[in-house]
């Protein structure tokens, strides 16, 4: 049960990261040729508090993924012989039974996403751009260029569907795992979790679609 508590706390922490990330990304819609976004990107890459949080975030992912692996192994071992005829769809939701699959899709997406944006932004490889006589790395240009490729956009949209389903179960499940269950508040948590999952993932998915369809 200890590992499940770690899963829920890291899961909720990662949810909070999604909010920050999405709000920052909204600057992509600024229509200023990427000025605000590139300045923001420099801030996120140099501010010592943000840099520290980067490691906390990395630890959050690491614990969440490691515990998922340990728990999944244990859970598989708990039923070595499966049923010949099984109808779990009659007693539980698809997403609740496939958190590992959804999580794997998200992890693959994350690797692609970091490789394309985070790695060049952190370790160099982006073109320069001058804003108010100061040279910035043009992460905005990388965003625009990446999202002209249809299959790259498709990966993002599919991944956001996976994330939405992962969160629809995961958000409210995390509260249950912590024993936070109440006749009055639980329905609100469930509703909020559902709305949170849909809105956040829609917000992320709209970015590649926006650049693909309206930014040629």
């Amino acid at each position: 049960m200890g590992r499940k508590i770690v899963m829920s706390i890291t899961g909720l922490f990662l949810c909070s990261f999604l909010v920050v990330h999405l709000i920052g990304n909204l600057q992509l819609f600024n229509n200023d040729g990427g000025e605000a976004f590139n300045i923001y990107s420099r801030f996120m890459g140099t501010n010592p508090i943000i840099r520290t949080m980067e490691f906390v975030l990395l630890a959050g992912f690491a614990f969440h993924i490691y515990d998922a692996l340990v728990l999944t192994r244990r859970n598989k071992a708990a039923r070595p012989i499966g049923y010949a005829n099984n109808h779990p769809e009659q007693n539980s939701t698809w997403s609740s039974r496939n958190m590992g699959l959804l999580g794997t899709v998200i992890l693959v997406f994350l690797i692609i996403h970091l490789w394309n944006f985070f790695v060049p932004a952190r370790f160099g490889g982006l073109e320069g751009v001058v804003i108010d006589d100061v040279e910035y790395e043009n992460l905005y240009l990388r965003v625009v260029e990446s999202f002209q490729v249809w299959w790259y956009v498709a990966i993002y949209v599919v991944a956001m569907f996976a994330l939405a389903y992962h969160l629809i179960h995961g958000f409210q499940s995390a509260f249950q795992t912590l024993g936070l269950d109440h006749k009055k508040y639980t329905p609100f948590i469930q509703m909020f979790g559902y709305a949170f999952s849909v809105i956040v993932c829609f917000g992320f998915a709209i970015i590649p679609l926006y650049f693909f369809f309206f930014f040629r």
Binding site: M1, K4, R74, P88, N91, S92, S96, R97, H169, S173
Partner: peptide, 15 residues
């Protein structure tokens, strides 16, 4: 005893 962990699917209570 080797039981698995809880994923909050709710299948147990449903059955």
């Amino acid at each position: 005893e080797g039981f698995g962990s809880c994923t909050n699917t709710g299948a147990c209570a449903a059955e």
